[in-house]
Amino acid sequence: MTPRTPLLALRQVSKYFGAVEALVDVDLDVHAHEVVALVGDNGAGKSTLAKVVSGVLSPDSGLVEIEGEQVTIGSPSAANRLGVASVFQDLAVAENLDVTANVFLGQELRSRIGLLHDGEMETETRKLLDHLTVRIPSVRTPLRHLSAGQRQAVAIARTLIGSPRIVVLDEPTAALSVAQTAEVLTHIERLRDLGLGVILISHNLNDVRAVSDRIEVLRHGRNNGSFPASAAHEEILAAITGAS
C-alpha cells in the first residue's frame, strides 16, 4: 500500500533570525480532512512555522511541497494562489469595513464595467457564513460592531474565498471568551468537514485536544513528538516543556 500524498509537506525546514534558531529541520505533514495542531511553549517556533506556510517568511533551507510538488511560497498572495489561506494571530480584519468587504478584501468581485459587485459578494458571503454555521445578523454590519468571536469567524470565513486546500489558523481562540471559543472550534470542525487540511496553532491544550486529529509538538524550533488527540494531557505537556 502506497502512503497517501500529503496535501502539505514540510521537509527539514529551517529559519534563522541572525543567531537565533527559530526553526531547525522541522518536518510536518498535513492531509486533506485533517486538523493538525501545532503546540509548544512561547518562542518554540509555532508562529514562525505558520508564517513560512502562509508566505510571510521564506525558509532559509528545506523543502515545501504541496500535493507532492515542490513550491516556493514567496508572499501571502502567492500562498493564496497555491491554495493556502491564513488567519493571523493579530486578527487581520479591517474594523471600519463591513462583513462582506472584509471577506472579499483583496479579492473583490467586479461587475462588467469594473465596479464592485456588491450584490454578488453579499450573496456569496452569506453562503460562506452558512457553511461555517456562523451567526451574524447582517453582512453589512461594520466589524467594529461585532464581538471578538464574530470577528474571528469573519476572519475564518475569508480564508474560504478562492477555494483553498490548506488553512492556517494562528491562535484563533487566544482573545476569546469560553462561549466564543466553543463557537470558533465548531467553525474549525466545519473546515475539516469541507475537506480542507487545517493547521491549528494554539497555546490551549484543551482546545487543541477538542478539535485536532493529530498534535505536533515544537520545542526550541525542533520537532519534539507527534501525538494522537487521545494522548494523555501529561504526555503532551512533557513534550512541550521537555520534562521526560
Binding site: A92, V93, G106
Partner: peptide, 19 residues
C-alpha cells in the same frame, strides 16, 4: 476606493490580504 478604506482601517490586514 474599497482598498483606500481598508488601508485606513487596518494597513497590516490590508497588506496581508493582498492589497
Amino acid at each position: 476606493g474599497r482598498h483606500v478604506y481598508a488601508i485606513g482601517g487596518n494597513q497590516h490586514a490590508a497588506e496581508l490580504s493582498g492589497v
